[in-house]
Design a protein around this nucleic acid. Structure first.
Length: 593
RNA sequence: GGUCUCUUAGCUCAGCUGGAUAGAGCAACGGUUUUCUAAACCGUAGGUCGAAGGUUCGAGUCCUUCAGGGACUACCA
């Protein structure tokens, strides 16, 4: 990379001129701001102490030194303490020529880096997926893809929360009110059917609490004594005792939900290497408790419950095993971590889970490391922010959710309307159009969710539809479609005649080349930060520069064959990068739209 | 109460380990199509980066305090 060469050159210059031992690692250069002439900028302020000259003199001195030693340097200019360096045009043209037809440009050597396990999605099986889950799924998928492109070996898994009191609530309501309703008989998708009874349960439960309260009971008591909740708790006990009828209903309902999830996952385009089910893992972790007791990490209270004291680490005491010997959430997760390590052998393990569980994962990692687990340092909670509506957080029970399937359907619908209104796709088959609408609708939705920093909470207003113009998925997809159209029209053009010396680069043309040159670095940065947003920003900037280039320069009609070739190569590489980057984000790009 | 976190244009968001005059998109207003796809391009307007101190050559970025949001602080998962 040219950046490394520049840094080495600068380090050498500082050494020779001022005897400053910076080492190329310590040198920082940045992209020159567009308002100034140059490609890269070196800020000399930190080195005034060693140069003992004013900023301008120092920068000029370094610039003049580089002019002699650095052959790729075209020119330089100095403004205050900023040394702006321009790289020779040849360098960028050679880059283009060498890479324009590389299928995997930007991606690191596959399987060249550490193995990583990414756990994401992890749904509850009592209700359908909503917008928050979509964010989780897209993030998990994109992060896995990005890590893979970065050279990591990546495995993905999904820990399905298929048991517990919330599942029993749906079951109770269905058993009492369902009259044997099934997805077939109701025409409802399985997960939506289960969700319907989850809501039914809550309605009935609330009514019961209300009437108990009217009869003089306190709220706390009413919440515990309401017949519905008692029924649900009974059911949980029966489930744990493997009562055949309970297990049968549980299995039936869960299977409906899985069929529903499967459909939604397909529409979202996410996949998993392995599914874990909590019904199989919820008893895990007890051996670890024993282990911790033996080596003194845990302690037992008089009632028999087992705890860990994390007060030294600024946290509280935390229960790891109940007095009756049953495990709690953290116990299970410790056990599951062990299981995952056994299954995949990944020392690095990423959990894509909402930021409401920051505390839990802090504790998990801390306990694992106190237990001396090899995988403890590699536990990483990719803590993403909630998706909020104008009224606040989404709550399934209260029906204030943006349903995943509804939203996907709406996005496809809007894509169809917009496409029809533009009228460019007339004559295409219905089947092709359906695929296109899905591609564009999902492109808009995915880009919308992925472009914001995962760590930050984000706002979604259902009243305002997601844009298809500007900084959006469809704009970038459109840029790709446009390039493909140019390349189709240019088919048959003889690309052999390419003499770099006969080419002149305009400002935009050069900007485009420099932008494309950055792609490998952007993948590495996105992987380092586990942030698909970095990639979104990059590909948007690329598409913008391309659009300007396209607007200002003829491509097919360019008379100079070398210039024309250079432009076609630029088109080709831009299209490849857009397709590649969007691929990592899980977004398809159309040939026409 | 304690811990964590957020606050940048009317709205939604960028801003890399401190660097030049704080950037996009949407919304508003005006312009560009006999020419390779106008889901595009160009322009105008819009900001005391929540507030106040501090650190230094330099702070949206680091530190402190305060204000206002949010999350967590379950023998629920």
């Amino acid at each position: 990379m040219i950046q490394d060469i520049i840094k080495a050159q600068l380090a050498n210059a500082l050494q020779q001129l001022y005897k400053a031992d910076a080492g190329s690692q310590g040198i920082v250069i940045e992209e020159t701001s567009p308002d100034y002439e140059g490609d890269f900028t070196f800020v000399v302020f930190p080195y005034l102490k060693v140069s003992r000259k004013n900023p301008e003199q120092t920068a000029s001195e370094i610039g003049n030194y580089l002019k002699v030693t650095f052959t790729e340097l075209e020119s330089f200019n100095v403004i205050k303490g900023f040394l702006n360096l321009s790289v020779r045009t040849d360098y960028w043209l050679n880059f283009l020529f060498e890479n324009y037809q590389k299928e995997n440009f930007g991606k690191a050597e596959p399987n060249s880096k550490q193995a990583v396990l990414v756990e994401y999605s992890s749904p509850n099986t009592n209700k359908p997926l909503h917008l928050g889950h979509i964010r989780n799924n897209l993030l998990g998928f994109a992060v896995a893809q990005i890590l893979e492109a970065n050279g990591n070996i990546v495995k993905t898994c999904n820990l399905v929360n298929d048991r517990g009191i919330h599942i029993c609530k749906s079951m109770v309501a269905w058993m009492q009110l369902g009259n044997g309703e099934t997805p077939e008989s109701s025409g409802l998708k399985g997960d939506h059917l289960a969700g319907k009874y989850y809501v039914e349960f809550d309605k009935q439960y609330k009514k019961e609490i209300e009437s108990l309260r009217l009869s003089g009971m306190s709220i706390e008591d009413a919440e515990k004594k309401a017949p519905s909740i008692i029924a649900a708790q009974d059911l949980l006990v029966k489930w744990e005792a493997h009562d055949p009828e309970t297990i049968r209903v549980w299995k039936t309902m869960n299977d409906w939900v899985y069929a529903g999830f499967d459909e939604t996952y397909k529409k979202l385009g996410v996949r998993f290497d392995k599914f874990y089910y909590e019904s199989n893992t919820y008893l895990l972790g007890k051996e670890i408790v024993q282990e911790g007791l033996i080596n003194g990490v845990f302690f037992k209270k008089d009632d028999g419950s087992v705890w860990i004291d994390l007060t030294e680490d600024g946290l509280d005491q935390k229960l790891v095993l109940r007095a009756d010997g049953t495990s709690v959430y953290i116990t299970q997760d410790l056990g599951t971590a062990e299981l995952k390590y056994k299954d995949f052998g990944c020392e690095r393990s990423i959990y894509v889970v909402g930021n409401e569980q920051d505390y839990h994962f802090k504790v998990l990692k801390l306990i694992a490391s106190k237990l001396g687990k090899k995988y403890a340092p590699g536990i990483y909670h990719l803590s993403y922010g909630m998706v909020e509506l104008p009224h606040g957080k989404m709550k399934s029970r209260e029906g204030t959710v943006v349903d995943a399937d509804d939203l996907i359907a709406e996005m496809e619908h809007t894509a169809a309307e917009t496409t029809k209104a533009l009228g460019k796709m007339e004559g295409e088959s219905e089947a092709d159009l359906a695929i296109l609408y899905h591609t564009i609708g999902m492109g808009a939705l995915k880009y919308f969710l992925l472009k914001v920093d995962p760590k930050k909470k984000m706002m979604f207003n259902p009243e305002e539809s997601i844009d298809f113009q500007g900084n959006t998925g469809p704009f970038i997809q459109y840029t790709h479609a446009r390039i493909r159209s140019v390349l189709r029209n240019a088919a048959g053009f003889n690309k052999n005649s390419f003499d770099p010396k006969a080419v002149v680069l305009s400002k935009v043309e050069k900007e485009l080349l420099v932008k494309m040159y950055q792609y490998p670095l952007v993948i590495a940065e996105a992987a380092k930060d586990l942030s698909p947003g970095v990639l979104c920003n990059y590909v948007f900037e690329l598409a913008k520069i391309y659009s300007l280039f396209y607007h200002d320069h003829p491509i097919i009609k360019e008379p100079n064959p070398d210039q024309k070739t250079m432009r076609l190569f630029s088109c080709e590489l831009t299209a490849r990068i857009i397709k590649s980057a969007f691929g990592l984000l899980g977004i398809q790009v159309p040939e026409k739209m």
